[in-house]
Simulated scan of single mutants.
Amino acid sequence: MDTVTDTAANAPHSQTLSRGIRVLEVLAEADGGLTIADLAAAIGVHRSIVYRILRTLEDHGLVIRDAAGGVRLGPRMATLARGVERTLQSSALPELTAVANELGMTAFLVVLEHLECVTLLSVEPRVGPATVAQRPGTRHSLAVGAPGLALQSLLTDRELAEHGSVERRDDDGAVGTRGYATSHDEVIAGLRSIAVPLSVPGSLPASLAVVYVSSSLDDAGIGARLVAARDAILAGSR
């Protein structure tokens, strides 16, 4: 037995680090700056503990205070985010930009993290009707939404079981036959989404998706455009 590995696996978790990460997650989900009291309530600890956590995060540029005294994510977070699946992001960005501008919809790249779909990259069209914002870091369950269905199609039953209790949904096999998944009113009421699975060797399971309120385009046309973008990314990764 590898003693070092075994010891590391059984070592106690760092409560302070866990709380610091939770603070960052709460800030990422907020629409504006939050107070220390807001953060303390969100993670269930005393304000003095949040204050000490914030001092450390500020020292590393991960959070900043705005003019009103609210706490926001700092610019250092953007630098760290660019390092996550850097090659996949670089390959996907030109295709997402083209899709967003051609369809007039927000296009985004989603990766699998345990039981959740996490938006890694998002592009809004330059012009067109009002679009839906999809911020990097946004997450939702693997069990719902077109990105979740597309990701499920990349996993075997065993792999899906390893991620927890998620019932497989495959639109009656549609993802495999037509190449894309669809959803309506599943993640956010009133929104539609179409997604295609993306499996790049050496990268996390991913999907390319668009989200929109309504469109004159049919699902097949949107799906075909995403399939073409997916194929271009795969060709560039070889």
Rank of each mutant, 00 (worst) to 15 (best):
T87K: 01
T87E: 15
L88M: 01
L88I: 05
Q89A: 07
Q89S: 05
S90C: 06
L93Y: 12
L96K: 01
L96C: 00
A98Y: 07
N101F: 08
E102V: 12
E102G: 07
G104F: 07
M105H: 05
L109Q: 00
L109E: 01
T119P: 04
T119A: 14
T119Q: 02
L121R: 12
E124F: 10
E124G: 13
P125W: 10
V127Y: 14
A130R: 08
A130Y: 07
V132Y: 04
P136T: 02
T138A: 11
R139Y: 15
S141N: 09
S141A: 15
V144N: 07
V144M: 09
P147E: 03
G148T: 15
G148D: 06
L149Y: 15
A150W: 05
S153P: 12
L155V: 04
T156I: 09
D157V: 00
A161F: 06
G164K: 06
V166Q: 12
D170E: 12
D171F: 11
G173E: 11
T177P: 06
T177Q: 14
R178W: 07
Y180C: 00
Y180W: 13
A181V: 09
E186C: 01
V187Y: 13
A189G: 05
L191Q: 07
L191S: 02
R192V: 09
R192S: 14
S193R: 03
A195K: 04
V196Q: 08
V200E: 00
P201L: 06
P201C: 04
G202S: 08
S203D: 01
S203C: 08
P205C: 12
A206S: 11
A206C: 10
A206D: 02
S207R: 04
L208C: 12
A209S: 08
V210Q: 06
V210Y: 03
S214R: 13
D218C: 05
D219W: 10
G221Y: 03
G223Q: 06
G223I: 02
A224R: 13
A224F: 04
L226V: 08
V227E: 03
A228N: 01
R230H: 08
D231T: 11
D231P: 01
A232K: 03
